[in-house]
Write a protein that binds this DNA or RNA. Structure first.
Length: 600
RNA sequence: GGACCCGUGGUCUAGCCUGGUUUAUGACGCCGGCCUGUCAAGCCGGAGAUCGCCGGUUCAAAUCCGGUCGGGUCCGCCA
């Protein structure tokens, strides 16, 4: 019995048509006489009726059917009797009168039902094919399909080439830990799986592709997080003869298109752009969640001459004191505040000063160190009123941003200040080119060594070679060089990042020098790319967007595992297949690999 | 490498803090029976758990303690 219709599409206009539907048993209701079977396929659910007096053979088989059996049902579609329509079902006006029924496949009783409460994640992953039958997960798969389709259509229409790049690639020393693949034909040598197609896409620019994109699988063997998997997918883009604005503009329009086509949401263009410095200052983050206000406010000038040593010293040593206002939190207990202090300590803060603005008094552990005027000045600046709680951190700008930024997020969450259904896209631009590596006592590239400096800061880059200032000091020119580096942020998550690349040797040497890499040494590591650049590299730049995370946000899921068909656990195992497993000794011998048992 | 949370029939869950009258709660599912219009069908009955594992404390441990395994979250790491 080959199907003629999908379950979910049967409507009033199909009445009196003879149809065949195929699908899984969603539920059965046996009334002793008449039996109802809800049959489900990808399109939806339709009710099939079996009457023992009219079709005894079909009724007998229907009696046997259990949840998740796979059935074919044939019969006419008819309007449901008056009063028995089910408005909860899209097909609820009609039903299929089951005249014939064929069991395409019986099924074991499933470990969990498609309609049940969500099982533990391990159980879901063990039986992922059942988990994916659940409506939430089936919708996520569908959403992912629609988004990737929309992405492809966008780039095709914009004249991009879709190019595949190798999965078997070359190991590079820095960056993320790599997955290693042994070579059989070249003994004792290994491929690695690509962390990203970064170098390949730049080679494609040298090759003259001009506009490249790929929905690319990437691999990183780093410890997991809720939004990290050992393999993940990027929307990878690179363009030639463009500047930063061209890339931002293209990316924005791509985002607008997927939001429109997949969710029907209109996202206003262009996206707001904040500089890195502004984002850190106002929200304490380089991926700020700007869906709610509660900004960090600098009160250093008010408290620098206060009697409180912690404030004094922080400002005197080049640090700062910043505060934020938590509305309505004056009733916070000592323990509530200790919890926040604990949180802030995770991010380097030594503590939090707080003022609870009660009806009659101000409760604060630092009240005695500050004058009334000083406190009043703080409250005014952060906009605090009676009933509010003011929190302040004094430290280096980095620690203040990190810790108070996290406190801000925590308070935003607790106070339910984050509006539901907001789609807050924005850019963070003008990142510094280098970050100071205190351990190694040198500058490291913030992104990767081919990220171009901001053209306005090239003089700073040169100045860095002729300065008396200590490297790492906040006045060192290299610490001030901005990069042509941009991050795309959605609802407080970094969903993409890219840069304009350096394509000229003279500039590249300046950058390499700053990170303590001489050109010849660099050639050993990136030789093939540098060599390619000597044969006419066009100016180029690009971006990579984290597809899994974008879809997870669109699906309102906390974990990217929910938008990946077959994800791995936090320890990078697959409960469904059992991977990873040992392989045959013979296979290892062929690969010239000896294994060493783990030390106990 | 470090910190924290979780682990009770097939599934979800109560009990754990404050150890003992609980034969370990309830729901879904499963099995049997009844029932001709339900749709999370209903009603009656039944089976199903040595409370992840190991050890300790105690007269007594699902409950307290230590370890271990598994799952999850975060820091480090990672763009």
């Amino acid at each position: 019995m080959k199907r003629t219709h999908h379950c979910g599409e049967l409507q009033a206009e199909n009445i009196d048509e003879e149809v065949v539907v195929n699908g899984w048993v969603q539920s059965t209701r046996d009334h002793g006489g008449v039996i109802f079977i809800d049959l489900r396929d990808r399109s939806g659910i339709v009710q099939c009726v079996f009457n023992p007096e009219i079709q005894p053979d079909a009724h007998t088989i229907a009696q046997e059917a259990r949840n998740e059996w796979v059935l074919a049902v044939r019969g006419p579609v008819r309007r449901r009797p008056e009063g028995t329509e089910n408005l909860k079902l899209d097909t609820g006006l009609v039903e299929v009168v089951g005249q014939r029924i064929e069991v395409l496949n019986a099924a074991k009783t499933p470990p969990f039902g498609v309609d049940d409460a969500e099982p533990e994640e391990l159980t879901r992953l063990r039986y992922r094919y059942l988990d994916l039958r659940r409506p939430r997960m089936a919708n996520n798969l569908k959403l992912r399909h629609e988004v990737t389709k929309s992405v492809r259509e966008f780039f095709y229409a914009e004249g991009f080439y879709e190019v595949e790049t190798p999965m078997l690639w070359k190991s590079t020393p820095e960056g993320a830990r790599e997955f290693v693949v042994p070579s059989r034909l070249v003994p004792e040598s290994f491929f690695v799986l690509p962390q990203s197609p970064q170098l390949c896409k730049q080679l494609l620019m040298v090759a003259g592709v001009e506009k490249y994109f790929q929905i690319a699988r990437c691999f990183r063997d780093e410890d997991s997080r809720a939004d990290r998997q050992p393999e993940f997918t990027q929307i990878d883009v690179e363009m030639s003869f463009v500047d930063q604005d061209d890339i931002l503009d293209t990316t924005e329009r791509m985002c607008a298109q997927i939001m429109k086509q997949s969710l029907g949401v209109d996202v206003p263009l262009p996206f707001p752009r904040y500089t890195y410095a502004e984002a850190r200052a106002r929200w304490g983050s380089d991926k700020p969640d700007t869906r709610f206000a509660m900004e960090l406010v600098d009160v250093s000038d008010i408290v620098q001459n206060s009697g409180f040593k912690v404030f004094q010293n922080a400002v005197a040593s080049g640090g700062q004191v910043k505060a934020l206002n938590a509305p309505g939190c004056a009733s916070y207990t000592r323990k509530d505040i200790d919890d926040l202090i604990g949180l802030s300590k995770q991010f380097g803060a030594k503590g939090i000063a707080s003022w609870a603005l009660g009806e009659s008094e101000i409760k604060s552990q630092v009240a005695k160190f500050l004058t009334k005027e000083q406190m009043q000045g703080i409250f005014e600046r952060v906009g605090a009123q009676t009933g509010d709680l003011v929190l302040a951190v004094a430290d280096t700008p980095e620690v203040v941003a990190e810790s108070l930024g996290r406190i801000r997020l925590e308070m935003g969450k607790r106070l339910e200040m984050i509006p539901d259904g907001a789609w807050d896209f924005h850019w963070v631009v003008d990142f510094p080119l280098f970050g100071w590596n205190d351990k190694e006592h040198r500058y490291d590239p913030m992104h990767h060594p081919f990220c171009a400096p901001n053209p306005d800061d090239i003089q700073l880059l040169k100045d860095g070679y002729n300065t008396d200032t200590e490297p790492g000091h906040r006045d060192h020119p290299w610490g001030k060089v901005r990069a042509t580096l941009y991050d795309l942020v959605l609802n407080g998550y970094e969903i993409g990042g890219g840069s304009i690349r350096t394509h000229r040797r003279d500039l590249q040497e300046l950058v390499f020098g700053a990170i303590g890499l001489d050109f010849d040494h660099a050639k050993e590591r990136f030789g093939f790319l540098l060599e390619a650049f000597e044969y006419g590299a066009p100016p180029h730049g690009g971006i990579a967007c984290g597809l899994d995370r974008i879809i997870a946000i669109m699906a309102r899921s906390d974990s990217i595992r929910d938008v990946i068909a077959f994800p791995k656990t936090a320890t990078f195992t697959c409960p469904l297949s059992g991977a990873p497993t040992p392989v045959d000794r013979k296979a290892l011998d062929e690969l010239h690999i000896a294994t060493v048992p783990m030390a106990v």
